[in-house]
Design a protein around this nucleic acid. Structure first.
Length: 515
RNA sequence: GCCCCUCUAGCUCAAUGGUAGAGCAGUGGACUUUUAAUCCAUUGGUUCAGGGUUCGAGCCCCUGGGGGGGCACCA
């Protein structure tokens, strides 16, 4: 037999001391076990396994057993082998399923010599199904005393470090499956995200909202100021945009008389990636007929507080600001302050969009805030706010009264025509929500759209266009309406207590991996 | 797009410019109550890639790549 019989990578052919370790060799060993099983007539990838319950259910039913108890209770459980402790004629293995862990107690005397040897042949990471009886060890560990077992799926690739898990962020985000296998914190964050979304749905259903789905592919990307992703439909041979907001379609449904609608959906913004931004993220938007922005503020507070309670059992969250960290009880009232008052507080001088733009430009210059020549007073005030006041908003704060100029879809303040009945929620200096009394006057809305279009034509790529169909809808009459959008990823970050949006998005956007 | 940091065994991490190491995983052995089991032995490396400086580079320099952080952008 020549050395050509061996695979190029498997250097174990000619030199018996080489190539017996490392990933390639490890995978080869495990693949060999599969071949051996098949030759013995067994299927290492069986089609199903019927278990009597999950491991959490097993623990709930038998967790109170005294140490050293043997029962006759027969169970069938399944899970992934996470740990193995071999002490000669006994093997202890820790298996985990989706909601719990339990120890397998494998005795050579019980299962027989052959089965004991094949259990010893299992690897960390393998999925097994076992039939056995419930017992506790002398130390009191709840265990399943194995009568028989079967391999449910072979792990051909070794698990990450059983104690340290995976810490390399690159690997954690690219191989989320491996992250979820070994890192409890990752599983916890996504569990919390699920609980938050479930809580929102329950809460909204309870308030009479119905859930709808609107198009992701838009002819015009409206409803927000952001750069869109552009795509193309072949048959229609037309340019389409991935949506940057849910707003304009949902308000068409209010015109249609649906009165209370919400959507939890993915939106796409062609902007930078950071600890707070992912190009695709999840927005919840709701619209309620006959309500105004004050009710939207109330519902925002209620939704997020209830979600924290539902997801963690506590309304207390830890907020990570730019420089500080603080625990906040969400059941306490949240601060409300007008944007112009927050700016005045920060710079010690009153500001108002009615002031001449020259005055505001001077203030901006004075505080080191740069501006664009085509910006009006309202936009400069927003810029002053973002640069002088926003970073201080650590505890939950509703910022209200945005200038009309930066709020093309919001209704004028009933007491001040330069401002809108709008709010944004800031927590930890990050925007989490945005809502307003919806502008429903089709004539004024057209004028606002025209202003947007003018700014866009002047070179501001993020401004909007005249949406004729939306205007037609308003012409049919939209009742007074309150609207709200909440960034679900950022809510998840807040409640899960994590610093990066990548910790709450299962598969965050990354550059493609080179294999 | 700009700046800074980082990349070493499957994983977690070491290594003054001077022989690339440890723990875990793996392999062989001991052990019938372990708990990250323990004990003995042991395999495993293109140090992200490509250049350069040097007698000598994992380490210093340059270019490129991945990731992280910051800035810009982000109604």
């Amino acid at each position: 037999m020549s050395s050509d019989d061996t695979l190029p990578e498997a250097a174990s052919g000619s030199d018996p001391t080489a190539g017996t370790g490392g990933l390639v060799a490890e995978k080869a060993k495990r693949l060999q076990k599969l071949d051996n099983m098949r030759e013995a007539g067994a299927n290492p990838y069986p089609y199903r396994f019927d278990r009597t319950g999950t491991l959490a259910e097993l623990r709930a039913a038998h967790g109170q057993l005294e140490a050293g108890t043997e029962t006759e209770v027969a169970v069938a459980v399944a899970g992934r082998i996470m740990l193995m402790r071999d002490s000669g004629k006994l093997i202890f293995a820790t298996v985990r399923d989706r909601d719990g862990e339990v120890q397998l107690f494998v005795s050579k005397a019980v299962v027989g010599d052959d089965a004991f040897e094949s259990f010893r042949d299992l690897d960390l990471g393998d999925w097994v199904g076992v039939h056995g009886t419930v017992m506790t060890t002398r130390k009191g560990e709840l265990s399943v005393k194995v009568q028989r077992f079967e391999l449910l799926s072979k792990a051909v690739r070794p698990m990450p470090d059983k104690w340290h898990g995976l810490t390399d962020t690159d690997t954690r985000f690219r191989q989320r499956y491996a992250d979820l296998i070994v890192n409890d914190d990752a599983r916890r964050s996504f569990r919390i995200r699920h609980e938050i979304i479930a809580s929102f749905r329950r809460n909204l259903h309870g308030r009479g909202f119905i859930e709808v789905e609107t198009p992701v592919l838009h002819v015009e990307a409206g409803g927000a100021h952001a750069r869109p992703f552009i795509t193309h439909h072949n048959t229609l041979d037309m340019q389409l945009f991935l949506r940057i907001a849910l707003e304009l379609h949902l308000k068409r449904l209010i015109v249609g008389g649906m009165e209370r609608v919400f959507e939890i959906g993915r939106i796409f913004r062609n902007e930078g990636i950071s600890t707070r931004h992912n190009p695709e993220f999840t927005m919840m938007e709701l619209y309620q007929a006959f309500a105004d922005y004050s009710e939207m503020i109330d519902i925002t507070e209620a939704l997020i507080t209830q979600a924290a309670i539902d997801a963690t059992g506590s309304p207390v969250v830890t907020i990570f600001g730019p420089e500080v960290e603080m625990a906040v009880d969400l059941t306490k009232p949240w601060r409300r302050a007008r944007m112009i008052d927050l700016v005045a507080e920060a710079i010690g001088e009153e500001v108002h969009p009615s002031q001449p733009v020259e005055h505001l430009r001077a203030l901006a210059t004075q505080h080191g805030v740069s501006f664009h020549p085509r910006w009006g007073s309202g936009k400069i005030i927003e810029e002053l706010f973002e640069n002088t006041a926003e970073h201080r908003l650590i505890a939950p704060t509703f910022v209200t009264g945005h200038p009309v100029e930066i709020s093309p879809l919001a209704r004028q303040d009933r007491n001040d025509p330069y401002l809108t009945e709008r709010f944004e929620l800031f927590v930890g200096a990050r925007e989490l929500a945005n809502g307003y009394s919806e502008l429903n006057d089709p004539v004024e809305q057209r004028a606002r759209f025209v202003d947007e279009q003018a700014a866009k034509d002047a070179g501001d790529a993020e401004r909007g266009s005249v949406d004729e169909d939306y205007l037609r809808a308003l012409e049919y009459g939209m009742p007074p309406t309150g609207g709200l959008g909440i960034g679900m990823d950022r809510v998840a970050m807040l409640i899960a207590g994590v610093h990066s949006i990548k910790e709450v998005i299962l598969f965050p956007t990354l550059r493609p991996e080179v294999f």
